[in-house]
Design a protein around this nucleic acid. Structure first.
Length: 600
RNA sequence: GGCCCCGUAGCUCAGAGGAUAGAGCAACCGCCUCCUAAGCGGUAGGUCGAAGGUUCGACUCCUUCCGGGGCCGCCA
């Protein structure tokens, strides 16, 4: 039985994981200083300045909104005030006095309702830059995930045609989230669920059969309920090459099984290629069909039954929609309402066959059986209605031990220069993933898909996303990286040997170093909230700060990074620039975007 | 009817329960014949949809309502 996630959280922000990290060096300056604050609070308790049994969970150390307030602020005095039976500012004063003894803390200030603002000694920021350079792309990597086995299931499109633009967002989101979690110390499996067990793969088989007949020179008509897309033409031809005319003029029962398998394999091959073009690689493709005839569905339902959650019953007709053909029928139901769903859900139809939900339950049961301690499903927003029942199923199957987070990706609206993009007829009435990737490339596609939070709709303008101007965030971030690489090449050409000793001299430079210091914290927040878009937004901010630094050199050459007559100075400035590149590179790596060496 | 998502500057959107709510675009005002690069700098712009509630503290959490979108089935 997987250990309960709640036990971890009950200690406050990852108390157990915190301890695990002690002694291995903490790159996250904020959790580092928080640790100092907590230790100081402990010391105050030991001296009797604070009562025993305080809950440090809500104590935070974070960057203040206004830089004028200092480098970090803690709410410790405010959140402990009630339990300590003392005014927040009084606690803050006492805490401030002790904290100001810390070597890294330059000054403290009690402010507002009881904030304690901290200013760190300047050397801390240079150390951050050095750490980033030493750690390279692993800077910001953490033990936060504590090796937790997590399964990220995404895309899971029906194997009946090419992936379309709607899948792109889910694919990019899922892949980036998986990378983010890996980066944060989780043990991640990327998984694709192949819906190859339902009626739609029969439809696919029949459609391919029609293309097969066509390949034999027959005239065929694509009736309602078949897939007319041209992408099946080569599949029909390949089938002809494989079986010749053996299936021509044969009844369905002769060819259906083989054609279905053949067609599904061909579709999955195409889907893999599409994913590959986008830079997505799955660890596991899980076949729905593999659940049938193996007792897995029965076993999952039996488990639910043993918990009293399966019964025979009749549902009320769905409301708000006129259903002429509705008649109440008895069927086998899962009591999902006892795990947070709104109505109980059928798992077996009145004719005795499974509903689609039954294999979904078995599939998630299988994930739990494989030892995953945390599950993440990524659905398109049109599947929002299934969230509660899946959560109910996982909750019931794991007895509440395995959390399931379902992330929804909203629609993508395509434009060409501000005009709604015209659908291509080539592959049916939708724009394919391949068209998008072929048009703008995987890097641009991926980055842009993450410039919105997953549950906000996203506009994708083919003209705009490839535009090379500062209005385009993809370009803007790439450009910052390219500028550093350019500097680097120039420094090398000038014979300037890089050292890892940063030279920070003014506020703008410190600001960049401070932004770099936030990276590990940002990664942790993004990982915790399952929101990779935060990475993209952060990179944009960092790039912006860097560009500002660079631009100063236009009017004031003495502020440029490289001074050929002063190697030590150049090297010190380059350290900061290189650290920016390290973080951008690490961030883009998580997003699956290649950092540009130069802009062309 | 019910459920889910969304509602933040003119527009597109960020925003771990913290202080005076941010960015980009657009607008307005300057600067730029630089080669460090496909511009740079600045100003203005807000009752965070509304009303209650919880809290020392709410854009954030809860309830209700309004508005926009999506979904609902023995379909997949």
């Amino acid at each position: 039985m997987p250990r309960k996630r709640r036990d971890i959280d009950a200690e406050g922000p990852h108390g157990r994981r915190r301890r695990k990290q002690d002694g291995i060096g903490e790159m996250n300056l904020f959790s580092d200083i928080r640790h100092v604050v907590v230790e100081t609070l402990d010391a105050m308790v030991a001296e009797g300045a604070l009562p025993n049994g305080l809950d440090y969970g809500p104590v935070s150390v974070e960057p203040p909104r206004d830089p004028a307030h200092g480098d970090m602020a803690t709410n410790a005095a405010m959140v402990l005030s009630k339990a300590a039976g003392e005014a927040p500012r009084a606690i803050a004063e006492k805490l401030a006095e002790r904290l100001s003894q810390e070597s890294r803390i330059a000054s403290t200030e009690v402010a507002g309702p009881g904030f304690l603002n901290l200013r760190l000694v300047p050397g801390v920021w240079a150390d951050v830059v050095t750490e980033a350079l030493d750690a390279g792309r692993s800077f910001g990597h953490s033990g936060f995930g504590a090796g937790l086995k997590v399964n990220v299931e995404f895309i899971s499109a029906n194997p009946t045609g090419p992936l379309h633009v709607g899948h792109v967002r889910g694919a990019v989101f899922g892949d980036a989230l998986a990378s983010l979690l890996t980066f944060s110390g989780y043990n991640v499996t990327r998984e694709y669920y192949i819906n190859d067990g339902g009626a739609q793969v029969d439809t696919l088989a029949r459609s391919v059969y029609l293309r097969y007949l066509e390949a034999h020179g027959r005239e065929v008509a694509f009736e309602e309920g078949t897939y007319p897309g041209n992408y099946l033409v080569p599949v029909g031809e390949a089938l002809r090459e494989r079986v010749g005319d053996r299936y021509v003029d044969q009844p369905e029962e002769v060819w259906l099984d083989e054609v279905r398998t053949f067609a599904t394999d061909a579709m999955m091959e195409m889907i893999r290629e599409d994913l590959s073009a986008l830079g997505v690689r799955m660890d596991v493709f899980f076949s729905e069909k593999s659940l049938y005839g193996t007792g897995k569905i029965e076993a999952a339902l039996k488990l639910l039954e043993s918990r009293g959650l399966i019964y025979e019953g009749t549902l009320d007709p769905p409301k708000g929609k006129a259903l002429d053909d509705w008649e109440p029928r008895e069927q086998t139901l899962f009591r999902s309402t006892s795990h947070g769903d709104d109505v109980d859900r059928p798992v077996r139809k009145s004719d005795g066959s499974w509903t689609y939900f039954a294999p979904d339950i078995a599939y998630h049961h299988d994930k739990i059986e494989r030892g995953f301690e945390e599950l993440i499903d990524i659905f398109g927003a049109d599947h929002a209605g299934y969230v509660k029942r899946m959560r109910a199923a996982v909750s019931a199957l794991s007895d509440g031990a395995v959390p399931l987070d379902v992330k929804l990706t909203q629609l993508v609206r395509l434009f060409q220069n501000g005009e709604p993009y015209r659908m291509s007829k080539r592959a049916g009435n939708f724009v394919t993933l391949r068209e998008v990737v072929d048009e703008v490339g995987p890097d641009v596609t991926r980055f842009h898909m993450l410039t919105r939070k997953n549950d906000a709709p996203l506009d994708f303008d083919f003209a705009h996303v490839t535009e090379q101007s500062k209005d385009n965030p993809v370009f803007y971030v790439q450009y910052a990286h390219a500028r550093v690489r350019s500097l680097w090449r120039k420094a090398e050409a000038a014979g300037i040997m890089s050292t890892d000793v940063p030279l920070l001299e003014d506020e703008a430079e410190f600001a960049v170093a401070k932004k770099i210091a936030e990276w590990p914290r940002l990664v942790e927040i993004a990982a915790r909230t399952h929101e990779p878009h935060r990475i993209a937004f952060y990179l944009y901010d960092l790039a912006s700060d860097f560009h500002a630094l660079w631009n100063r050199g236009n009017d004031r050459p003495e502020l440029r990074f490289i001074h050929e007559d002063d190697e030590a100075r150049s090297s010190g400035k380059m350290a900061l620039a290189r650290a920016v590149a390290v973080v951008i590179s690490a961030g883009l790596d998580i997003l699956g975007v290649t950092p540009a060496e130069e802009m062309r």
